[in-house]
Lab assay of single mutants.
Amino acid sequence: SQQIATAKDKYEWLVSRIVKNHNENWLSVSRKMQASPEYQDYVYLEGTQKAKKLFLQHIHRLK
């Protein structure tokens, strides 16, 4: 749906803004993002596993 696509774009923007180093780990980054509406919306719509998967894809691109 359009809502999910929009939430994903915003979440990816948030991840790219916060995660600048491929050594970052999911636990510390997800804690930093918990207060962000972009993170909350995406997790609400798609779940934590998908959020983690996108985070890991971003990390992989930074290597």
Rank of each mutant, 00 (worst) to 15 (best):
Q3M: 12
K53F: 10
H60W: 07
V15S: 00
L62I: 08
M33Q: 00
E12Q: 10
Y39N: 00
T6C: 11
S28A: 13
L54Q: 02
M33Y: 05
S16D: 10
S36V: 09
A35H: 14
Q2A: 08
A51Y: 00
A7G: 02
S36N: 11
K32E: 06
E46Y: 10
E38N: 04
Y44S: 15
Y44F: 11
K32R: 12
V19Y: 01
V43F: 00
K32P: 00
H60Q: 15
Q40F: 03
Q3E: 12
Y11M: 06
L54P: 01
S30R: 11
A5W: 08
K53D: 14
S30K: 14
K50P: 04
Y44C: 14
Q2R: 08
S1M: 09
T48P: 13
S16M: 10
A5H: 07
A5E: 06
K63H: 03
K53P: 01
Q3Y: 11
K50V: 03
A7P: 06
T6V: 14
Q2Y: 08
Y44H: 15
H58K: 03
K50R: 08
L27F: 11
L56R: 07
Y44L: 15
Q2N: 14
I18N: 04
K32M: 10
D9V: 14
R31D: 08
E46A: 11
I4S: 09
T48M: 13
R31W: 09
I59M: 12
Q40E: 06
H22W: 12
Y39P: 00
M33K: 02
P37L: 06
Q40N: 11
G47P: 05
Q40W: 13
K50M: 13
V19N: 01
K8H: 08
A7C: 06
S30A: 09
K20R: 11
N25Q: 13
A7D: 05
Q2G: 09
Y42I: 00
K53S: 13
K32W: 03
K8C: 05
K8I: 05
A51M: 02
I59C: 13
L54K: 01
H60L: 12
S30I: 08
A7N: 00
L62F: 03
I4R: 07
Q40L: 13
A51D: 02
A5S: 12
E38M: 06
Q3T: 11
H22R: 06
S36M: 15
H22G: 13
V29R: 04
I18M: 12
E46F: 08
R31I: 05
A35N: 15
A7H: 07
Y42M: 01
P37C: 08
D9S: 14
K63L: 06
A51S: 01
D9C: 05
Y44G: 14
H60A: 15
R17A: 06
H60P: 00
V15C: 06
Q40M: 09
A5L: 10
P37M: 07
L56E: 14
E12L: 14
K20M: 06
Q2I: 09
D9T: 14
N23R: 11
T48C: 08
N23Y: 12
E46M: 07
L56Q: 13
K52G: 02
K32S: 07
R17S: 10
P37T: 13
Q49D: 14
K50L: 03
A51W: 03
Y42T: 01
Q2D: 08
K63S: 10
R61A: 09
D9P: 02
H22D: 13
D9H: 13
L27E: 15
L27Y: 14
V29S: 05
H60T: 12
V19P: 00
A5N: 13
E12R: 10
S16H: 12
A5R: 11
V15L: 15
S36Y: 15
N25A: 08
A35G: 14
K32I: 09
Q49C: 10
F55W: 05
E38P: 01
V29I: 11
S28K: 09
R31H: 07
G47E: 02
R61M: 09
E12M: 14
R17C: 10
V19E: 02
S36L: 15
L56N: 05
E46Q: 12
S30P: 00
G47K: 02
T48R: 11
H58L: 06
Y39T: 02
D41R: 13
R31C: 07
V43H: 00
I59D: 05
H58Q: 07
T6Y: 12
K8Q: 10
Q3V: 10
W13N: 15
Y11W: 03
V29H: 00
I59G: 01
Q34T: 08
S1W: 05
S1Q: 15
E46C: 13
K20F: 04
M33R: 02
L62E: 05
N25P: 07
N21W: 01
V15E: 00
R31E: 12
L54E: 01
E38W: 09
K10C: 05
K20W: 04
Q3G: 11
Q40K: 13
K20A: 08
K52M: 06
V43K: 02
Y44D: 15
A51L: 01
V43D: 00
N21Q: 08
L27V: 13
K53T: 14
K52N: 03
D41Q: 14
V15W: 01
V43A: 06
I59N: 03
I18R: 04
N21K: 10
R61C: 05
I59T: 09
R31T: 09
K8R: 14
N25W: 03
S16Y: 07
E46W: 01
V43P: 01
